[in-house]
Design a protein around this nucleic acid. Structure first.
Lengths: 109, 109
DNA sequence: TAATAATATAATAATATTTGCATATATGAA
DNA sequence: TTCATATATGCAAATATTATTATATTATTA
């Protein structure tokens, strides 16, 4: 699955919450039910979406499905989402207000 | 803007392409028109979305609007999206196939 | 083997996102 | 001024995502 599909599937509050929980270790669906305030079928749908994107997988233990993180991009992604960025990026040198630098492209009329 | 909204706005092929282009430096809308194969109003719409999410900003130079990256999360995000992860995360210890470890939650009946 | 627990699937309704198109605004040039 | 260029905005149509509800599947227990 390509990176845009991955971002799309991660960009949902419930799915982020699931991925964060799975970062702590294996969880079965009923573990997730305990702290997510949505219906069980909805949890299953989100798990299916995450699995189809290759982000998680599961093994079967009796009637439990034990889900775990699979895609190594996820821990990195979750980490930068938590990271605290206090400063904006430095503005460009060519700002017409400061009169510094030149705009790096061809001008039209 | 919260991190989920940020992910949502980044998770679109055109907007990723714009952000990557802006990583190289300031670009005005007509620069973007040259390599994006979509209409000008549509580009403007995506730029507006990115700006409302606090990811980019612009300065005005005559009738050009020169856009640049503003949110420091973006370079980090683009970098991990490009990063090559060849291996999946190691599977859990409690896999019933390997018979190692135990499932770390309460069992139900 | 019948009942129950754990989980998934299907269908639909509600909602949000995306694009396309027409038009508006603002600046600089003639 | 008037015109052209650069860019934005508004709105409707098309499309995609999400949640809900009902039902199905599978494995365990009684």
């Amino acid at each position: 699955m390509n990176r845009i599909e991955v971002l799309k599937v991660v960009a949902h509050p419930v799915r982020i919450a699931i991925l964060e929980k799975l970062s702590d270790g294996v969880k079965c669906v009923s573990d997730l039910e305990e702290f997510l305030e949505i219906t069980q079928p909805n949890i299953s749908q989100h798990l299916t979406a995450l699995r189809h994107a290759g982000l998680i997988d599961f093994f079967i233990d009796g009637r439990l499905r034990c889900y775990f993180l699979k895609n190594p991009l996820i821990p990195d992604l979750l980490q930068i989402l938590k990271k605290d960025y206090s400063e904006d990026l430095p503005g460009p040198e060519c700002c017409p207000v400061t009169k510094k630098g030149t705009y790096p492209g061809e001008r039209r009329r």
